[in-house]
Design a binder for these strands. Structure first.
Length: 371
DNA sequence: AACGCGGGGCG
DNA sequence: CGCCCAGCGTT
């Protein structure tokens, strides 16, 4: 999707460098003063306490992290207390919050601060950035909140606000996008009150410019918001989708009665909807014939005793969002033992020609019938 | 640049 | 079910 990137760039230059930076920051800060939540880590400039909150809040909503913040702040009132903890104890406190490497890295950092910094938690960006578990965002957050260092934070909230307000369609998780959003955030930063500015824009993203159903109707920035003016609020920010290719393992059974082959009519929800394949067992992982036929050469899959005649090598079939590993097993079963499933039926090679088969099934059957 | 790492809330 | 959340470390 493209939204005239050249024009946007001009627009950003016009807004960001000439016209709007003061208005933007002042409007956001004004909104912040009227709408901010009372959060415990905002009532301190202790970099240690802010660090606690920031690590806990990485990829974690405030509501979810809050009880953990209290738990840690009470158990470890200073970084020295934290440094004296055991990993088991920290992980136990962390239990249920997810992303457990955060807890382990916290302990490493606490111990390093205890040793290298004599228990005085650093507040300079350049010191913070080298600590385990502290990246660009967290270093900017701690240094600006604790010491008003002019470092602009860029998190999910900031990305969303900037993408919408300036109409930036560069993906927020591409390399180019990351640089671009960081650059804009830097340009926009209120150099007099960087800490409050950072808090304000994030709070604005969290409460006002929300991912779903943002409150544009009462937004103080909507008159100059690119996304609002151009009906693009729902499509910004742009994010590169993760390659969510799933592996699936299909085990097909070729059951022949003379020339006739037992087919299966597929349902209408999965891939190859309403087409025809063979009796199938899908497994969560690749299985060997030995696993599929646990008692030597026979198995009772489908509540029917099947005897393995031949196992074919696995074929990989690639779809846009799925990689399917297909195993074919030629089996024998006496017809009176066969318990037909509702979707199963025997077909002749002639009738087969009139049916829609997925490519890999068609190829397999053609080779089988042709032999 | 891509991926793994978690648990929970929301539409 | 897919997306998103005060991201970071590793490859």
């Amino acid at each position: 999707m493209t939204f005239f990137p050249f024009c946007q760039k001009m627009l950003y230059k016009a807004k960001g460098l000439l016209l709007w930076p003061m208005d933007f920051s002042q409007t956001i800060i004004q909104w912040y003063n009227g709408n901010k939540r009372d959060l415990p880590w905002r009532n301190t400039t202790d970099p240690y306490v802010i660090w606690l909150s920031e690590i806990i809040l990485q990829q974690t909503r405030v509501d979810q992290g809050m009880p953990y913040f209290y738990r840690f702040a009470e158990k470890y009132p200073t970084v020295s207390h934290f440094a004296a903890a055991s990993e088991d104890e920290v992980l136990s406190l962390w239990q249920g919050l997810g992303y457990y490497s955060r807890g382990r890295n916290m302990l490493k950092t606490a111990r390093l601060v205890q040793q290298q910094y004599k228990g005085v938690f650093p507040h300079k960006y350049s010191d913070l950035i080298s600590l385990k578990g502290i990246g660009e965002y967290t270093a900017a957050a701690i240094s600006s909140f604790a010491a008003n260092e002019a470092q602009a934070v860029v998190d999910g909230n900031v990305n969303r606000v900037l993408a919408r307000y300036f109409g930036i369609d560069e993906p927020i998780n591409s390399n180019k996008g990351k640089k671009q959003f960081q650059q804009i955030a830097n340009d926009l930063l209120d150099r007099q009150y960087p800490g409050m500015h950072n808090q304000a824009i994030m709070e604005f993203g969290a409460l006002q410019c929300k991912p779903k159903n943002p409150a544009c109707n009462i937004c103080p920035l909507r008159e100059t918001c690119f996304a609002y003016s151009n009906n693009l609020v729902k499509s910004l920010p742009v994010k590169l989708k993760k390659n969510s290719i799933k592996n699936r393992y299909f085990n097909y059974f070729l059951i022949a009665d003379g020339e006739n082959v037992l087919l299966n009519k597929r349902g209408d929800t999965d891939i190859w909807a309403n087409m025809y394949d063979l009796p199938l067992i899908e497994t969560p992982t690749q299985v060997t014939p030995a696993q599929l036929f646990p008692s030597g050469q026979t198995t009772t899959l489908f509540q029917t005793a099947l005897a393995l005649l031949k196992a074919y090598p696995v074929k990989k079939h690639i779809l846009t969002h799925q990689h399917i590993y297909i195993s074919f097993y030629q089996v024998s079963v006496s017809r009176d033992e066969l318990k037909l499933q509702p979707t199963w039926f025997f077909t002749t090679p002639d009738d087969l020609k009139a049916l829609a088969l997925p490519k890999p099934i068609l190829m397999f059957l053609a080779a089988f019938i042709g032999q």
